[in-house]
Amino acid sequence: MARSTRSNDWGFPRWRGYGSGRDAAPVRLCDRAGCEERGDCPAPKSPNNPDRWYFCEKHAAEYNQGWNYFEGLDKEEAERREAEERGEAAGFRQASWAEWGGSGDGTRSRDELRALEVLGLDPDADFEAVKKAWRTRAKEVHPDVRPGDKAAAEQFQKLQVSYEVLRAAEERREWKG
């Protein structure tokens, strides 16, 4: 019996794929031990090192949660790097809807986090908690309650500024939302 020389390329539609082969595409797995998810989120192995770990979204968020990129830098260098990071990574703020980051996931600015710290609140506190904390702490150090106390007046000013920063941010969120 004669061997068939007919190929699968004749006619329409083509009977084989348009690619060069049917080989499986290589997939990088998450570098976390025991994880079988796709590892497509790079994370630095150490500061100022080009080597990267590749994690799935869940493990990348866990790894980055406690990472301090500015540790060991003086204030000016940290501010310069932060400005560079904000400029380069501004588009990633839009990905906050994915919710794979915890508090500090980019939904609050550094100023808002400082203001929450002054009020003694967690980074994920809602605005009602902000109002309550502000009223409570402001009553304790108000200049009418403590006349002539410069430290109390200074603390009251810090509370006022913190509240204004958080109020403005809340208004921006409501306006966008």
Rank of each mutant, 00 (worst) to 15 (best):
R108Q: 06
P123H: 13
E84W: 13
D74V: 07
R28P: 03
E36N: 10
F92M: 12
K58R: 11
L121I: 08
L116Y: 02
T107V: 06
Q65T: 12
Y54I: 08
W67D: 10
E112M: 12
R28V: 14
N48F: 14
G87H: 03
A78V: 00
T107Y: 05
E117G: 15
N49D: 15
R52W: 09
G101P: 02
C35D: 00
A90E: 14
W100H: 14
G101R: 09
R28M: 12
E128W: 04
N49R: 08
A95P: 01
P123Q: 11
A60P: 03
A78I: 00
R38G: 03
E76M: 05
L113K: 09
F70L: 07
P47D: 00
E36P: 04
R137I: 03
K131C: 15
Y54E: 03
G106D: 06
C30F: 00
A43W: 02
F127R: 00
A138G: 02
P44A: 14
S20F: 07
W53Y: 14
P44L: 09
E128I: 05
D51A: 15
G39M: 00
R135Q: 05
Y63D: 06
E88H: 15
R114I: 06
L119T: 01
W53M: 01
C41Y: 11
V27S: 11
E128Y: 04
K132N: 07
R93Q: 12
R52K: 13
A125W: 00
A125R: 03
C56A: 00
E117Q: 15
C56R: 01
